[in-house]
Design a binder for these strands. Sequence first.
DNA 1: GTCTATAAGCAGATAGAC
DNA 2: GTCTATCTGCTTATAGAC
Lengths: 197, 197
Amino acid sequence: MSKPVIHPRKRPRQRRSEATVDAILEAAARILDSHGLDALTTNAVADRAGVSVGSLYQYFPGKAALLAELIRREGAALVVRINVVAAEPASTLAADLAALINAAVAHQLERPGLARALDFIEPTLPLDGETSALNADLARSISMILERHGVAEPHQAARDLIALAKGMIDAAGLAGESDRVGLAARVTRAALGYLKH
Amino acid sequence: MSKPVIHPRKRPRQRRSEATVDAILEAAARILDSHGLDALTTNAVADRAGVSVGSLYQYFPGKAALLAELIRREGAALVVRINVVAAEPASTLAADLAALINAAVAHQLERPGLARALDFIEPTLPLDGETSALNADLARSISMILERHGVAEPHQAARDLIALAKGMIDAAGLAGESDRVGLAARVTRAALGYLKH
DNA sequence: GTCTATAAGCAGATAGAC
DNA sequence: GTCTATCTGCTTATAGAC
C-alpha cells in the first residue's frame, strides 16, 4: 500500500552508466511529450532508449522513480533559469516579471506535453524532501523578487502567478501556439494586472 | 488502433435505467475527485455504484465513453452557469468578468480533483462533435461578452482567460484553499489586468 | 552490466446463467 | 436487465544466461 519508490537505484552512479540513465530519461521524456502518460510503460521506455527492461530496472526501481527523477531534472532546469533572472534584478517590477515569464515560456513551450504530464502527475507522486524543496525553491525565488518590489503577500502572489502562467502556457502549448513572444506578452499583462490591482 | 468509443451505449435511455447510469457516473466522479485517474477502473466504478461490471458495460462501451460522458455533463453544467451570466449582462466589463469568474470558481472548486482530472484527460479523448462543441460554446459565450465591451481579439482573449482561470483555480483546489471569494477576487484582478493592458 | 524470457498480477471486456 | 465467472492482453518486475 505504501509507495516509497523515490530514488534512482544507484545513487552514486558509475561514470559510464550515466549515459544509460540519461538515455532512459530522455526516452521517457520524449514518450511523455508526444504520447502522454498512458504510453509511458517501462517496455516502451526501454525500447526507445535502446536498452532492455532489465537494464532500466537496474537503475530505477519502478515507473514512479523514473517520473520522480524526470520531475527533479525538469524542475532543476527551470529553477536555474529563474535564478539567473533573480541574480540580475531589473529596476522595475515589469521588467523583472517579463524576464521571469520569458524564462517560463521558453522552458514550458520546449516540450509542452512533457510539462503538462509532469505537472499533472507530480502531486500524486511520493516525492522526497529534496524534490519537493525544488518547487518550494521556485516559489521562494519568485517570492523574493516580488518582495524586492514591495509586493504585498509575496508568497501567495508567487503561487498565483506560477499557476496563472502555467495554465496559460499549457493551453497555448496544447493549441500548438508557437508565438512565444506574443504569449509571453499576454502572460505578463495578466501578471502585472494581478499585482497592480 | 482507432478509438471510436464515444457515446453511451443506449442513446435514448429507458426511464428506469437513468438511475443506474447516474449512479455509475456519480461513482466515477467521486473516484476521480478523491483518488485520481489511476484509480478509475471499471471494476472500481461498478463497485462504488453498487452494480456489476456487466451492467456498466451495458451502458458504456468502455472507460473512454464513461469519461466522455462525464466531460459532457460537467461541461454542460458550466456552460449553463456561464450562460446565466451572459443572459443578464452588467454595464461594466469588470462586473461581467467578476460574475463569470465567480461561476467558474464555484463550479471548479466544488470537486477540484474531478475538474483537474477531466481537464487533463480531455484532450486525449476521441470526443464527438457534440462534446467538442460544448467547449467551443464556452469560449464563444465568453467571447461574446468580451466583444460586448469592446475587447479586441475577443476569441483569443477568451481562450487565455479560460486558461488563466483554470490554472489558478486548479492550483487553489490542489492546495486545499477554501476561500472562494478571495480566490475569485484574485482571478478577476488578473483577468482585468490582461484585458486592460 | 546487459540481455532474454518469463512469472505474476491486474484491468478491460465479454459470455452466458438467472 | 443484472449478475458471476472468465478470458485475453498488457504491464510490471524478476530470474538467470551470457
